[in-house]
Design a protein around this nucleic acid. Structure first.
Length: 150
DNA sequence: GCCAACGTTGGC
DNA sequence: GCCAACGTTGGC
């Protein structure tokens, strides 16, 4: 089983929204590195840290689980969608998504600040300045370290 | 294939 | 709202 971290802006889709929905497609990812992970690497049952970005206290707020393998992200084909990509070809999908299932909220937010304070986490892409990857792998050791901060 | 311009992300 | 960092685009 693998571990991941996925970013979302709480104003757009936060952990409370996932809790309400139970399970939701994680769509709108328009970055090739992230796309490759969604399409090729994620497996059902993988555990995910749900991260709130672009908000008052950015940080990890909950845990989710991968509920499907990667499959084409239809929002790229829908001109009505804010994620529409005119260059996407229905026969050769450019963008992929997975479904993500709510597991639980953390007792408290593990802030980016707190994550940066841990030397053992200094290799996480997340804590690097200017990291714009919205989906990234987390090592088992990092996963354990982070859970102990809860 | 280089690289400047541009757009987006995301912390602060 | 600012701006640094970075990815993408497109002219050449």
């Amino acid at each position: 089983m693998q571990y991941w971290l996925m970013k979302s802006e709480p104003e757009v889709f936060g952990i409370d929204d996932l809790q309400t929905m139970g399970i939701e497609p994680w769509d709108g990812v328009r970055n090739y590195q992230a796309r490759n992970m969604l399409r090729d690497q994620m497996q059902i049952g993988d555990q995910v840290f749900f991260y709130h970005s672009n908000c008052g206290v950015p940080g990890i707020v909950g845990i989710a689980e991968i509920a499907t393998q990667g499959y084409p992200d239809d929002t790229a084909l829908n001109p009505e969608s804010k994620y529409f990509d005119p260059k996407s070809d229905p026969l050769k999908p450019r963008w992929y998504r997975v479904d993500v299932k709510f597991v639980r909220k953390l007792h408290r937010t593990i802030s980016l600040h707190a994550l940066r304070a841990q030397t053992s986490l200094e290799n996480m892409p997340l804590v690097r300045k200017g990291c714009r990857l919205s989906v990234m792998p987390v090592t088992p050791a990092e996963w354990q370290t982070i859970l102990q901060l809860e």
